[in-house]
Amino acid sequence: MSHGPTVAGVTPPPHRRRTHPGDLIFRGLSGGSAVSVLAIFVLSIILLFEASRDSLSRWGLPFLWGQVWNPNATPLSPIVFGALPAILGTLETSFLAMLIGVPLSIGIAIFLTELSPGWLRGPFSFVIELLAAIPSVVFGIWGALFLVPYMGTQVDPSLAATIGRVPLLGAPFAPSPVGYTGDGSLTAGIILAIMVIPTISSVSREAFKAVPNDLREAALSLGATRWETTRLAVFPYAKRGVLGAITLGLGRAVGETIAVVLVIGNSYTIAKSLYAPAVSIASWIANTFGESSGLEREGLLELGLVLLGISLIINVVARLILRRSVFTEGMGT
């Protein structure tokens, strides 16, 4: 597929060597359109640097580890902007999303390619694909009006009362000193986990599907069970694609905005508890940008630059992993 449309073996007769002028125009027009992708890419980086120039020069690198976001000067607290709570919040919620979402997604991919009876495969994969079609604002309203109250009254208190009491390992789930509103990193992490499942499971499925059947048959003929076949023959071959899928899912979790801003609580602090209101880069931009102006707006644009940097690194790594893996088709989104 990847080498489809070359016109191999067709040499035009000598008297028609000259390229048709229409061909040149068409090639230029379509080439120009294709380059627009590159242009958007380069433009994004230049524009964000340019638009946040004052903020960049005023705060310098300490912007990255500053802990305070104060747009209004008072005698006791000068204007200062720091990105650390947002960066940590983004990492924390994405990490939670991966912790919950990755095992589920791989389980789904393994079930759908290796273990499922044929008649279940179609309906199940269809339903998982539907999850990908739900817009993030719908996850947002469901999160804000259904999941948050449910977490606050049911899940958070009982987690704190059970796992939270376990010494050491249970520490992140320890009872919250500020009570349970349902907002916070844990709820955001759960929503993000649901949202990355379609991405990770569908790309992992492609990886499993690309494993040659010979390997499965060889393992089965040696007497391996279904699971042993998957673990010993299929998984090593698909490892790279699964890793790419996970990285792609991480990129999605890091940048998700609407679903997060509606459930995370939007408190610009380094949250001491998974149950306490927190913040992520994307959610803070969405929450604050509309009412901001001047230096604060530039600070938010710089925050956006940080997010662009993080997501570019993640996505470039993901695409490099996927490009070198044995399968490359069907990796559109």
């Binding site: 590159l38 433009l43 890091v254 940048g255 662009l308 570019l312 996505n315 695409r319």
Partner: peptide, 27 residues
């Protein structure tokens, strides 16, 4: 490489695209 950039671009968060276009129109 165009293909690669297009793939990477699909992974850029939409909020970032929002503030990029804001910066474009603003500048």
């Amino acid at each position: 490489s165009l293909r690669f950039f297009a793939d990477v671009l699909t992974g850029v968060p939409s909020i970032v695209v929002g503030i990029v276009v804001f910066s474009l129109f603003f500048l």
